[in-house]
Simulated scan of single mutants.
Amino acid sequence: MKIIIINSGSSSIKYQLINMPTKEVICSGMIDRIGLDSSNLTYVTNSTKLEESLPIADHKIGLEKIAELLMNDNIGVIKTTEEINAVGHRVVHGGSYFTDTTIINSDVKEKIKELSILVPLHNPAHLLGINVAEEIFATAKQVAVFDTAFHQTIPVVAYKYAIPNALLTESKIRVYGFHGISHKYVSEKAIEYLKKSSKIISIHLGNGCSMTAIQDGKSIDHTMGFSPSNGLIMGTRSGDIDHSLIFYLINTLGYTATEVNNLLLKESGMLGLTGYSDLRDIEASAEKGNIDCQLALAMNAYRIRKYIGSYAAAMNGLDAIIFTAGIGENSSYIRKLVCTDMDYFGIEIDMEKNDIRSKEIREINTLNSKTKIMVIPTNEEVEIANQVYNLLLN
Rank of each mutant, 00 (worst) to 15 (best):
L232W: 01
K336P: 07
H93G: 06
D240N: 11
E381L: 04
V186N: 00
E170C: 08
D350V: 01
D355Y: 05
Y97E: 14
V260D: 04
S12F: 01
G289R: 07
A313Q: 12
I31W: 03
T22L: 11
A213S: 02
I154H: 04
E363D: 05
K60N: 13
K306I: 08
S310R: 13
A57Q: 14
A166H: 14
I364A: 02
I130N: 14
A314W: 03
I191V: 09
L297R: 08
G309Y: 05
I220N: 07
A133L: 12
S331I: 00
T236M: 06
D216G: 04
G76C: 14
A86E: 14
I34A: 09
E287I: 11
I282Y: 07
I163K: 03
G225K: 08
L232T: 00
S116M: 05
D107H: 13
I246G: 11
T101L: 08
S8H: 02
S8C: 15
N261Y: 03
D350H: 03
L194M: 13
G94N: 02
K109H: 06
L263W: 06
K109P: 14
H183Q: 02
Y389R: 04
S47Q: 14
S12Q: 04
K172V: 04
I34P: 13
K65C: 06
I282P: 10
L128G: 10
I66P: 13
Y15Q: 09
V87Y: 13
G254I: 08
N230C: 12
L318S: 11
I246Q: 10
N46L: 12
N251S: 12
Y344P: 00
G269M: 07
P377E: 01
V108L: 15
Q16S: 13
G326W: 00
K79M: 13
D242V: 15
G289S: 08
T101K: 05
L36M: 14
N354Q: 02
I241Q: 08
I291C: 06
T371W: 01
G35V: 09
N316W: 06
T256N: 10
R305T: 05
L271A: 05
I75H: 14
I291T: 13
Y161F: 07
G328K: 00
C339T: 04
S28V: 09
T256F: 03
S202I: 03
M374T: 08
I18N: 05
L168C: 06
L128Q: 12
S229H: 09
E24R: 12
C27R: 04
Y333E: 07
N368Q: 09
